[in-house]
Amino acid sequence: MKTNAPHLKHPESASEIESAAASWAARVDRGKLSFDEQAALEKWLGADTRRLGAYARALAVNAHFDRAAALGPGFSPEDFEEVRPPSPALHRRHFLFAGGAAVAASIAAAVGVGMFSTGTAVVTAKGDTRRIALTEGSAITLNTDSHIEPRLEERLRQVDLVRGEALFDVSRDPNRPFVVHAGDVRVRVLGTSFSMRRFDDGSVEVAVLEGHVEVDAGSGLHPYRLRRGERLRVFPGGDVRTEHVSHAALERSVGWRRGIIDLHGMTLAQAAAEYARYSDRRIVIADQAVGAMKVTGVYSTSDPLGFARAAALSLGIQATPTAEGMRLDSR
């Protein structure tokens, strides 16, 4: 492979190269190059490997859109204007300065949006997150492998959390309460932001980021009032545990909105179980002593193997790739 150190020898920026490459691709799209043009193209390409790469990429982009023919002659681009991806007119450096998370978040925002009113099940696959806007102004963000069913009625806004975890940003409307059901547990809110998760063991957790909510644990007793910074977990037998959580910790606990997972205070075994929610690539820990080791830090939800490797490095244990994912053992 032959690559130069482009930034040292060639002051030409990547985006200048890209513009020139796009012009060449458009020229080739027009028709066969003349002998002179062909020579000029080859001369241009030969001066920097990045030019060849950018040119190949421009050709590929042009070819990618050949599939647009399948849209048919009735296609009218105006119909597709509302759901815009991040505007290509914005220069890419702006995105980079904004930080990776901002890019990702705005991209995610551009994708998982739909207006939902009623009777529609919304489901995410393992590893996906999705944000939906309800027609009345609230928004729900679904975490991995989750399922909700919103039912908006005239006097009541209801959502069933059938499976998984979701964050609810509820628009304030005193005349139209917002109620989330998770089995027997019911959360009633006016205007707030809170997250709710159903665990595999049957328990349900509610955490309030803003405002307050009322939780009916399904036991027929008084509902619990939760304020900002409070978290409550209802266990299958009816036991209820509440705790205060710092705002920073709460924000971290809903980091999955941005594709991050906070493993602070977890054991390696718990972290592996947490990752199993997001990916079928498994982290397998046979050794109990290894499983009990503590981990900390914030990781990407999409990279379980990267996490396993990092954990192995910092804990001094052995990481072995397997067909299913990664096995962790003591050395």
Binding site: A108, A109, S300
Partner: peptide, 23 residues
Amino acid sequence: RIAASKACEDERATPEASGIRLG
């Protein structure tokens, strides 16, 4: 797009600043 949204661990940018609150 979705893959990109998951693959990010930069905590500095807030979702508010990036316009994720579409609702």
